[in-house]
Simulated scan of single mutants.
Amino acid sequence: MDVLITVTLVIVVALVFDFTNGFHDTANAMATSVATGALKPKVAVLISAVLNLVGAFISTEVAKTVSNGIIKEGPGGVDITPVMIFAGLVGAVLWNLTTWYLGLPSSSTHALFGGLIGAAVIGAGVGSVDFGVVLSKIVVPAVVSPLVAGSVALVATFAAYRMTRNARARGSERGFRYGQTVSASLVSLAHGTNDAQKTMGVITLTLIAAGYQGSGTGPSLWVILACGLAIGLGTYVGGWRIMKTVGKNITDVQSPQGFAAETASAATILISSHLGFALSTTQVTSGSVIGAGLGKRLAIVHWGVVGRIATGWVVTLPAAALVGGVAAFIASTSTVGLVVVAVLAVAGGVTFYTLARRKPISAADVAGSSTAPAASDAALAGEVR
Rank of each mutant, 00 (worst) to 15 (best):
S370V: 01
Y353E: 10
D365L: 03
T351Q: 05
A381S: 15
A379S: 11
D377V: 14
V323E: 02
T351N: 04
T371P: 00
E383K: 11
A378P: 02
F352N: 08
L338D: 01
V350Q: 03
A342R: 08
R357A: 14
V350C: 06
T351H: 06
A374W: 12
S369N: 08
G324C: 07
A378E: 12
S332M: 07
V339G: 05
G368E: 09
A372N: 11
L355G: 14
G325Q: 03
A378I: 13
I330S: 02
L344W: 01
A372T: 07
L344D: 05
A345F: 11
V339I: 15
P360C: 09
Y353K: 09
L380E: 09
A331G: 06
A347V: 13
S376G: 09
A379V: 13
T354S: 14
L380Q: 10
T335H: 02
G325I: 02
I361K: 06
V343N: 07
V366T: 09
T371R: 09
G349F: 08
V339T: 13
R358G: 13
V366Q: 05
R358A: 13
A378W: 11
A374V: 14
V326F: 03
D365C: 03
T333N: 04
V346Q: 00
T335Q: 03
V346I: 15
V339F: 06
S332V: 04
L344Y: 01
A342T: 15
L344K: 04
G348L: 09
V350S: 05
A378K: 06
V326N: 01
G368V: 09
V343W: 07
V343P: 07
S332P: 05
S370N: 06
G324H: 05
T351I: 11
G348H: 07
I330E: 01
V384P: 00
A372I: 02
R357K: 15
A356Q: 08
G324D: 04
V366F: 01
A381N: 07
S362T: 14
V323S: 02
A328E: 00
T333S: 07
V326R: 00
L344P: 03
A374S: 11
A331Q: 02
L355D: 10
E383T: 11
G337T: 01
F352Y: 15
I361D: 03
A367P: 00
A363H: 10
V339K: 04
V323W: 01
A345E: 05
A347N: 05
E383H: 14
T354G: 09
A331C: 06
V323G: 02
S332H: 04
